[in-house]
Design a binder for these strands. Structure first.
Lengths: 349, 349
DNA sequence: GTTCGTTCCGGAAACGTTTCCGAAAATAAA
DNA sequence: TTTATTTTCGGAAACGTTTCCGGAACGAAC
């Protein structure tokens, strides 16, 4: 029988109906010790009848845990971030946790704010994937007072950081450059966003070329297809075109490739293009895009697991710093291959 | 000066330090009436000094509002769902709300569970985008006891539903079929998932053909690229191939087009393909994919606004049923066009 | 029938807010 | 000055749990 007037039914109502004390009801709810099997089942029964749902706010107030974690990412719409959000949610759910989704828009102020005001978020911990990496972020993380895991997107972080950090990427830039040089390209260009965003991807470029030719570096507004398109236009307009482009991510790479195709530039013959992320569109684009798998799903799952462990064991003072090994996947945009391209689908990310 | 030992600082501490009562501090926090400007600023000052952050659980317990809404979607990684999540979060943030992200995996049980257990979610309301639409879902929504907005993904819902519903799609299937028939295609196939998922998209197909030729209907496992690829293989293997395919979404359409290309089937000459969603990849694929824009971002924003309004005005008993007008965007996969394709980028979704 | 140990249970005190209500203070009216 | 009115403030009672602690109930052992 279902409650008609949806008036709040509390633990007290249950206690009265079942003829027990509220402490006992609480024990029944939480599977605690010190309650006989029969009274427990009787209480569970009346809970069912009354449609009682424990008030989460009251519980949180008492036990100081909300069973929620925050996930702060730049933009849920971009690149591999949906994968990350998915993995985090799955891991959290497995531990009875919920995920509060926050987009920082890669905005330095938003990134600072979200960790500064973490207490206002009603969460037990946070996974943050910074993009802007404002100067004072590490300091704020250190004094946040709540467990934090960092999904590090291409930045060198000081090892003293009081947070578990798992790196999405550090070596993947080198992987791309090594590959392009191995296949004999000498005028390699870079297409990305402002230098300090996803810094390491650009730094890998700087380190790999003997001398940076400023004309071969294109910094767009973001990581979008449009940036790729504009970069292609830019490179095409140069007196001497590059013979390869290292794109900061797959979106940009795909934009590049498609625009080149329209401009009559052959990929990979005239110009090789390699991206990063290995998202599913790399195999759909034509030509298919060579890319680096950075294993976003695994990284995210690990970040979540580490966070939940730290929530459980608040006292730990050793912080994990994990680095995943990126993997280069060569496709048509850098080397002419003869194989059935659609078969690759399963090996994504 | 920042607190050293991070012991909880409560409203009482603030009251003591500022030499006022706790009621007054509360008034200062909430910008309430009945407090002079000078005491308010003095209190704000000591709040700053002590690093006081109001305990959200206690507030929620008292006011019965958590300032959180839930967003339940099939899978954050799919199609336009990231766009939807983004829009919802933006709208929520503008009203001081946070978003709890939930993936139902298009699983009927999960969809039921999430609304049945809505009280356990610690939210003031929910936006749900069902996929499986289990039979008892409407009933559960009606007795949820919390405001719910439905983002309806291609299903006819009974108008008596006690929820605001905004439809992502209803007419878009007809739009596609009309277009394909207008350009003279007569053997039109359908590629989608099981009939009852996103039902209306398939029903539009049924209604538009005089007689359903079962061999021209392909039901895959999901909405993925792979489904499109397999559908292409299937249609290619038919004694008499279709001359057009209506794909349940862009992912499937892109899979189809790319596979056809590999098989030497010309698109759109031999076979026209049209998808739905108008995601950004439609303009990247080659040929570019004709598609229907279902305005996911706008739909999501409206759903959020309606939900927040209902939370504000709990007593309303009129429920909004909004239908957005879908828009067909013709590209190369259905008609050979001669125009610079990358220029379309701005008009997405 | 005592005594002792377990096991099971209930009362009541937190947890940290908001808000009602009455009192004090300040201001206006007389 | 006195009185009436308005503004500002503080005490205390909720809100719905969890959990400590003491006591009842119940066997088993004597």
């Amino acid at each position: 029988m279902v409650l008609l007037a949806s008036k709040k039914v509390t633990i007290e109502d249950v206690a009265r109906h079942a003829g027990v004390g509220i402490a006992t009801v609480s024990r029944a709810i939480n599977n605690s010790e010190g309650i006989s099997a029969k009274t427990r089942s009787r209480i569970l029964q009346t809970i069912e009848e009354l449609g009682f749902v424990p008030n989460t706010s009251a519980q949180s107030l008492k036990v100081r845990l909300t069973n929620q974690i925050a996930l702060a990412v730049p933009d849920i719409r971009n690149a591999i971030i949906p994968d990350i959000a998915w993995s985090v949610e799955q891991a959290a759910k497995a531990h009875g946790y919920r995920v509060v989704q926050i987009n920082t828009a890669g905005n330095a102020r938003a990134e600072l704010e979200v960790v500064r005001d973490i207490k206002k978020l009603h969460v037990d911990g946070m996974i943050i994937m910074p993009l802007a990496y404002p100067k004072t972020l590490p300091e704020l993380i250190n004094k946040a007072g709540l467990p934090i895991s960092v999904i590090n997107y291409g930045k060198q972080l000081e090892p003293s950081l009081k947070a578990d950090v798992v790196c999405l990427s550090i070596l993947e830039g080198k992987l791309v450059m090594d590959h392009l040089q191995q296949i004999g390209r000498t005028r390699i260009a870079y297409a990305g966003t402002q230098k300090d965003v996803i810094e390491d991807r650009y730094l890998a470029y700087e380190r790999s070329v003997e001398r940076v030719d400023a004309s071969l570096v294109y910094f767009g507004e973001d990581f979008s297809l449009q940036t790729g398109v504009r970069a292609a236009d830019y490179f095409h307009g140069l007196a001497r075109m590059p013979d390869a482009v290292y794109a900061v991510n797959d979106m940009v790479a795909i934009g590049l490739v498609n625009r080149f195709k329209e401009l009559g530039v052959r990929v990979p013959e005239d110009i090789a293009v390699v991206g990063i992320d290995n998202n599913q569109w790399t195999t759909i684009s034509s030509p298919q895009i060579s890319s680096v798998s950075i294993m976003g799903s695994e990284v995210a799952r690990l970040a979540a697991e580490l966070l939940l462990r730290r929530i459980r064991e608040q006292s730990r003072d050793d912080y994990e710093k994990v680095q995943f090994e990126p993997r280069l996947i060569v496709r048509e945009s850098s080397v002419s291959l003869k194989r059935s391209p659609m078969q690759e689908g399963g090996a994504l990310n």
